[in-house]
Each structure stands twice: as C-alpha cells, then as structure tokens.
Write a protein that binds this DNA or RNA. Structure first.
Length: 270
DNA sequence: ACTGGCACCTGGGCGC
DNA sequence: TGCGCCCAGGTGCCAG
C-alpha cells in the first residue's frame, strides 16, 4: 500500500488521535519485522507522551521527550486507530495503547515494515543520507541534473533511489515520467536541464494530487480499514498495459526496468 | 562511486 | 478443491 502519499495520509489520519497522548502500554505480538523489533522500542515508548508525529521520506516519526519511534510500512504495512480490547486479526503485530482508551494498531502481512527507536532520527543511518523531500524547495531541476551527471542508470531507477529523492515509488515513478514525457529507460545522465525542471514539477504535481486524493478517500480509515487501490482512478499508465495513452492514444507498454514493472507510452515518452 | 541482482515475507489471482 | 506459479505499492546489502 504505502507510497509517500499514503504514508502522509496515514500521518494526517492518526495525528489527531495520538498527538499529546500518553502511551500507557505497548503490546508487541510479533517482533519479526524487517529487523526484529527491539524491546528498546516498547520500553522507551511506554510512559512517554507522543508530542507529535512527523514524516521523513516514508518513515513515520513518533516524537517523544526522550526519543523517536521510527515506523516504516514496507510494502504491506498500515496503521489504524482502534478501541483497546478489539481482538487482533492475523498480522496485527503491534498495539500502542493511549491514555484516551484508544490504541494505534500496526498491521503488516509481509513484514517488510520496521519499528526502530532513535534518540535522534535525523542522524540515524537509515535517514541521514536520504535525498530531499520531493515537495520541498530543495528538490528541483537543478538539483536533479547535478546529481544525474555522468550516471547511466535509467531515469526511472534514478528517481526511485531514495538517496536522490525520497518518496517516489514504483507507481508514481511511471506516472511522473509519463506526465513529463520522458522514457523510463533513458539514462539519467542524458537528460537536459529543461527536461529535469519539467520532471521535478511533474513529480511534485503527481505526489501532491495523490495526497489530496488519499486525503478524501481515506478520511474514515480510523474507523474501518484503509482501502487499497483508492487512487487507481487517477492513474494514467500504471497497470494499464495495452490501454490507449490518455495523451496520444498509442497503446501503453509494460517493461521490466530494474526488476520492477514499468509502464510508459512509447509514442509520447522519449 | 556506480550498477545490477538478490533477499526478506505473505497472500491473491490465475491456469491446470 | 487443490496445487504450483507469478505477481505485488520497499529498500538494504552484496559482489563486480
């Protein structure tokens, strides 16, 4: 489920329920996530108040006075607010009980997600060297062109590299490149400044629109469950192999780039 | 420094 | 119904 827009939507959805709430108890049913959940996480979180929840890249940062819990949703993770006592389903690995009587429930069938405690997350090895946020001013055509200089990787793999720019997942990489008219297989080092300027704008636009769509569709996900595929509606190429390109009508093609399915229009993307 | 490939794990959908 | 196969929204790590 989680691309940057869903992580951001999750953050906005749960923030009102957990900000300024004391953590009364942490229940970890299964510590086997991408990395084993350290007992440091429950030990440090219990008794603390969650001052705020922020996002950096696809990490949700639960900030307390003594440190931060970093949460990554991996490929299949999700969070929701429940009433304490609601029986856990399979894959509901962690509950964080709040003074209000509600709890934050973390679910992750594939267990690629992670929960990590960090005193200073900005300096944590997993976050320290990440690229800029795509919706920040640090992210622009100049920056992309500079980082791409001399590089032979495909532009699709390049923009999906979190050390270049964070938050561009497999879906939005295809969508952004289509909007920008750039072929996903083009070497990153062989794209003009002007086209990078355009690409940066398209990434920004696609992600911002998706956040907005997520915001409306997932508004009630604290009650029930989030609905996967809610933004399928807005996709122009991803998953649409064979369908006509919304721009020019040529059939959308699918090809594997960097071991990931990629979708593009062979006519309008160069 | 870069690059490509593999690994982690579970479930859903498909064809037989 | 069951089984085997392929696919899935991420990303750290390894060898070359």
């Amino acid at each position: 489920m989680p691309e940057l827009p869903e992580v951001e939507t999750s953050r906005r959805g749960i923030a009102p329920w957990i900000e300024n709430q004391a953590v009364t108890k942490v229940v970890v049913r299964d510590r086997r996530l991408r990395w084993p959940v350290s007992e440091e996480v429950d030990r440090n979180l219990e008794g603390q108040t969650i001052d705020s929840i922020r996002r950096r890249a696809k990490y949700l940062l639960f900030e307390t006075g003594t440190g931060t819990m970093m949460m990554h949703l991996g490929m299949s993770g999700s969070v929701r607010i429940i009433e304490v006592g609601e029986p856990p389903m399979k894959h509901d690995h962690v509950d964080i009980h709040l003074a209000s009587g509600k709890a934050l429930r973390f679910r992750d069938p594939r267990r690629f997600g992670s929960l990590i405690w960090a005193e200073n997350p900005r300096e944590h090895a997993l976050i320290r060297d990440l690229g800029p946020e795509p919706l920040s001013d640090d992210f622009n055509g100049d920056y992309l062109r500079e980082r791409a200089s001399g590089r032979k990787v495909s532009i699709k793999q390049f923009i999906m590299n979190a050390h270049i720019v964070v938050g561009v997942g497999n879906i939005y990489a295809s969508e952004s490149l289509h909007m920008a008219g750039i072929h996903p297989n083009r070497p990153a080092g062989r794209i003009s400044e002007a086209r990078y300027e355009r690409l940066a704008g398209c990434i920004r636009k696609v992600l911002a629109a998706a956040i907005e769509a997520g915001g409306t569709t997932l508004r009630d996900f604290t009650g029930s469950d989030g609905q996967p595929g809610y933004f399928a509606h807005h996709l122009n190429v991803y998953g649409h192999a064979g369908a006509p390109c919304p721009g020019c009508g040529a059939p959308i093609r699918q090809r594997v780039i960097g071991q990931r399915a990629s979708y593009f229009c062979p006519a309008c993307q160069r």
